[in-house]
Amino acid sequence: MTKYAAYEAVNWNNIEDAIDKITYEKLTEQFWLSTRMPVSKDRSDWTKLPEEEKRLVEKVFGGLTMLDTLQSESGIDALRKDAKTQHEIAVLNNIQFMESEHARSYSSIFSTLNTKKEIEEIFRWAREDDYLQIKAQIIDDIYSNGSALQKKVASVFLESFLFYSGFYTPLYYLGRAKLINVAEVIKLIIRDESAHGAYIGYKFKVGFNQLSDSEKEEIKTWTYSLLYKLYENEVKYTESIYDKVGWTEDVKVFLRYNANKALMNLGLAPLFPDTADDVNPIVINGLSTGTTNHDFFSTVGNGYLLSVVEDMSESDYDY
């Protein structure tokens, strides 16, 4: 007999939940790195943007960097504590790495388009913006103190809803054939986040279905209350960064549309009346545009072999 504790080796030939295997394979097939993206090709577009729009781009990417950092440093650790299988832990490990890569992607964009002084200002703004800090604090508090299901709800709301006030801007530019390479980095991130939100939402549904009727009603009430709280703050955040360029109302529609997507990932009924038909068609067009850049000599671009971008569709949000 060994004197050591019996550590269990993960066995991928004995899968307890097929969704773990499917998701792991999907995420590894989607693997990409920000260093392979030719963002420098967008410098000409960047120099032509009005100053107000440059500041907007900087803020939305600064905010997204902070939220990806929160998810990689706190969120996945919190979810991992409640994992039911070793394969689920493996999926979460993959998600954690890619959240770190997403955060690195924005720094790659900043280093290409911005000066050192501008980059320092972007990160200073992210540390000091009240609305950005409030939503991060709300989510992080749930990660620290919430139940297993509450933590999953917070994660899905972060990945499937709160990111989208920032995603609107690059998708808008992509739909207008501007900052194409920057926007395609965001499309890769969106593709990842769609898979993350769907997977964690599935794990929520597994736990939710094991509850009594009264417990189900309790977590549903809590979930909708949290969404209202986050939405109220997100509206203020949106107004604070989009009012100067006049896009605020369109972004709010996009927020509500994606809030419904987050609820659908959780298996819950949509809250808002907004559908894809209500979203600015330029943004929907940007969301559904496939690979438009490929360097056949170096295979760099979002069409390179490790990461072929496909058209986004409704089904990308769901299993």
Results as ranks from 00 to 15, higher is better:
residue 168 Y to K: 09
residue 227 L to R: 01
residue 46 W to M: 02
residue 260 N to H: 09
residue 218 E to I: 00
residue 28 T to D: 07
residue 197 G to V: 07
residue 90 A to E: 07
residue 248 T to E: 04
residue 162 L to W: 04
residue 315 S to N: 07
residue 37 M to G: 01
residue 27 L to Y: 09
residue 93 N to G: 12
residue 131 Y to G: 02
residue 225 S to V: 11
residue 148 A to S: 15
residue 43 R to P: 00
residue 163 F to Q: 10
residue 118 E to N: 08
residue 317 Y to I: 13
residue 202 Y to I: 09
residue 60 V to D: 03
residue 277 D to M: 11
residue 240 S to L: 01
residue 297 F to V: 13
residue 60 V to W: 04
residue 14 N to H: 08
residue 102 H to Q: 12
residue 274 D to F: 05
residue 287 L to C: 07
residue 56 L to P: 05
residue 298 S to L: 03
residue 1 M to R: 00
residue 249 E to M: 08
residue 267 G to C: 05
residue 153 V to P: 15
residue 153 V to A: 14
residue 239 E to W: 03
residue 306 L to Y: 11
residue 54 K to I: 05
residue 314 E to L: 13
residue 241 I to M: 10
residue 249 E to G: 00
residue 87 H to G: 15
residue 208 F to M: 01
residue 247 W to H: 08
residue 87 H to S: 14
residue 310 E to G: 04
residue 296 F to Y: 09
residue 292 T to H: 04
residue 32 W to F: 09
residue 12 W to T: 14
residue 35 T to S: 14
residue 43 R to S: 00
residue 277 D to C: 04
residue 181 N to P: 08
residue 314 E to D: 12
residue 75 G to S: 04
residue 293 N to T: 12
residue 128 E to P: 01
residue 215 E to Q: 13
residue 190 I to P: 06
residue 120 E to P: 00
residue 22 I to M: 12
residue 29 E to Q: 09
residue 244 K to D: 08
residue 65 T to M: 05
residue 2 T to R: 01
residue 185 V to G: 09
residue 220 K to F: 09
residue 94 N to Y: 03
residue 75 G to C: 12
residue 65 T to Q: 02
residue 312 M to P: 00
residue 248 T to N: 01
residue 210 Q to L: 06
residue 105 S to K: 05
residue 164 Y to V: 06
residue 229 K to R: 14
residue 45 D to V: 09
residue 47 T to A: 03
residue 173 Y to C: 02
residue 163 F to M: 15
residue 237 Y to L: 08
residue 55 R to A: 01
residue 277 D to A: 15
residue 12 W to D: 11
residue 226 L to P: 08
residue 226 L to I: 15
residue 318 D to E: 03
residue 102 H to T: 13
residue 112 T to C: 14
residue 158 L to M: 14
residue 293 N to W: 10
residue 53 E to F: 13
residue 248 T to Q: 02
residue 196 H to P: 13
residue 162 L to N: 07
residue 135 K to C: 03
residue 25 E to Y: 02
residue 64 L to H: 02
residue 223 T to N: 05
residue 155 S to N: 09
residue 32 W to D: 03
residue 121 E to N: 13
residue 302 N to S: 04
residue 209 N to H: 08
residue 256 R to G: 00
residue 311 D to E: 12
residue 173 Y to K: 11
residue 152 K to F: 04
residue 106 Y to R: 06
residue 171 L to S: 02
residue 156 V to R: 02
residue 20 D to Y: 00
residue 296 F to T: 07
residue 209 N to G: 11
residue 155 S to A: 14
residue 198 A to R: 01
residue 5 A to C: 00
residue 70 L to W: 03
residue 315 S to I: 15
residue 296 F to C: 06
residue 41 K to N: 02
residue 230 L to M: 14
residue 61 F to P: 02
residue 258 N to C: 03
residue 214 S to V: 05
residue 229 K to A: 03
residue 202 Y to N: 14
residue 145 N to Q: 14
residue 76 I to K: 04
residue 302 N to P: 15
residue 256 R to D: 05
residue 99 E to A: 11
residue 84 K to W: 09
residue 214 S to T: 13
